[in-house]
Design a protein around this nucleic acid. Structure first.
Lengths: 340, 340
DNA sequence: TGGCATTCTGTGTACGTTCACAGAAATTGG
DNA sequence: CCAATTTCTGTGAACGTACACAGAATGCCA
């Protein structure tokens, strides 16, 4: 009952005005730190606020101000992200830091089940946030549709889906990173290098293949590229089996993701070969897989905090109305472990 | 400028009413799915909504309804949680699932820097959420103070700080889990078992020692307990060094956390001993440390999703006004790996 | 046809702010 | 000491919704 009383009794600016013997306007001016409030009024108001325990109602303020100083951070596919991918935490922190500097509140919204989808869409369309950062967006998602329909200022981490034409986004330089790590592989003396190329229908997949090709230049051999549909362990294992059958003299392989690489290592060991002595393997993502394999994977680490920070910067820019829409491409680091 | 237009033009319930040739009240009734709206009105309204692109303004609704159907999920110390501790993701998902079932929106708020603290406190006090779930709360935190002052319905994951007397919270059964894993160690044949007891000033630390003592019963030897201040790697390493000097015949050790255990393993190896052949080591938390050590740690896994779900349940109960305040204690699993 | 319940609709007010505006009080200057 | 500023204050509107209430339309039955 104490709770109930406390909640219904929430003091308003009106109560403060009454207590202090001034008007609502004056209290409002004091609270917002404006000029033109006399010393006498100031003191009276301070005392009154303390006495009645006043805290401003942000919902009411948002309503009249038509902005919230908040941006949503939407996370799709949370299971794979939070459990498998250590990057999401750093992306969150990077974004939060940047938003915090601009005095904006970040609210992370998780889209897991079907129900979440509609609820989050309502939340966004309800004017509770000024803008939104989105990771792993899907084209057919109600959330994405709402964002487009309302033209909510948005920044995507990764490529925006489908026809989100004029959206800002930040991606890693897949081409450059794939090229770098392939060159590292060459530098270790590998001569017959193949690639398990996953998800070629996605930009990330296609770009990693492009980088691989660029790095090898004339030495590139089409027949050493094994396309697989998904970034998965089993796809990597099966693809590697086929590749080894076709090219038994392989001495290096670039897997399009760590999961794929883990599968590839499994397939290599099946044939009695050793990693890295017979075949050097490199992956991509520096996900949880990278430390689970034996030996640990050499792989590409995404600048996770940077992705978050840049996404935040982009959405803030759109909020201010500067810069119409932009895309940012970030470089990656390479972490060299035992697998190559 | 398109953006600007779209944002200022947001259609209201009034626009829909005008377009459909009915009144605000009727539109409101339709939107909220109430009875008493004629077929003719229904059709006209549906067409009008489609035409003007109306979406309800949640902020306005929240203001008049005096509730938001949203609960905040506050994460303190995000660096250590998101980077080191894989549990936080599952806690989030567990909570989200439960809240989603009750048709509540979860908004994760990260408290990292000093600035975040005040901003989040304002956010919470502004009536933007009905309740709140808090992990790693601190007593001196403005956020905690606001929650107490406003008597905001809250549920803590872990013990609530200081004088948060009447708060709900969910904790793991530290005593039981420590006791279980110690017994497992005994069952493997260890006879001289020590403990690196960290953070005895915290409930978690004290409880883990209690469990350890319980499990050993008469065999408990006070001199084999080495207290260290923090749950850290270096504390574990230093503590283990002292313990080994005092009791060179040790054949098992229970470290109060995985980080402590990792440090202990380091110290053991320094002396030329082997893990697990000479000394079996077990940890607590199943954090990222557990897979980094060689051999991998046997440890206690927290029921992370359960913690989140229970916290959500508790806060929902307080929201409804049922159950005044409750504490829940959850059992843990043990994962047995190579270190013991 | 009249009475009465039922279904439907419109209007006014409230939620707790901010802001524009008008006007009062205090201050300045010639 | 009066006019012209500057500082201060109160009032009324608006933000976009929900809800209570009154009243209109319809259906039903005697």
């Amino acid at each position: 009952m104490t709770t109930k009383q406390a909640r219904s009794k929430r003091a308003t600016v009106h109560d403060v005005a009454l207590e202090a013997g001034v008007s609502r306007g004056t209290v409002s001016r004091y609270v917002n730190g404006e000029r033109y409030v006399s010393a006498a009024a100031r003191e009276a108001i301070e005392a009154a606020i303390e006495k009645v325990g006043y805290v401003p109602n942000t919902a009411a303020r948002n309503l009249v101000m038509q902005r919230t100083q908040a941006v949503g951070f939407i996370v799709h596919e949370p299971h794979s992200l939070f459990v498998e991918d250590p990057n999401i935490g750093e992306i969150l922190l990077g974004a939060n830091t940047r938003l915090s500097e601009a005095d904006h509140q970040m609210a992370v919204l998780i889209v897991d089940t079907e129900r979440d989808t509609d609820r989050v869409a309502r939340y966004l369309s309800g004017g509770l946030v000024d803008g939104v950062i989105i990771v792993s967006a899907r084209a057919d998602d109600p959330v994405t549709r709402v964002v487009e329909r309302l033209q909510l200022p948005a920044a995507y981490v990764g490529h925006p889906p489908g026809a989100a034409g004029s959206a800002s986004f930040v991606v890693i330089d897949n081409v450059g990173a794939a090229s770098s790590i392939t060159r590292r592989l060459v530098e270790t003396g590998r001569r017959r290098i193949g690639m398990i190329a996953a998800a070629l229908d996605r930009d990330s997949g296609a770009d990693r293949l492009t980088g691989f090709r660029e790095a090898l230049g004339d030495a590139f051999d089409e027949s050493l590229v094994e396309p697989v549909p998904l970034y998965s362990y089993s796809a990597g294992r099966d693809g590697m089996r086929r590749l080894l059958e076709r090219a038994p003299d392989l001495d290096g392989v670039f897997a399009a993701s760590d999961a794929v690489a883990a599968g590839a290592i499994e397939a290599i060991k099946e044939t009695g070969r050793s990693v890295p002595d017979d075949i050097g393997v490199v992956g991509f993502d520096d996900s949880a897989w990278a430390l689970r394999t034996t030996p640990a994977l050499s792989t590409v680490r995404q600048p996770a905090a940077g992705l978050g920070a840049e996404a935040a910067r982009l959405v803030l820019a759109r909020l201010r109305g500067d810069e119409p829409a932009a895309e940012v491409r970030l470089d990656c680091d390479i972490v060299w472990r035992g697998s190559a």
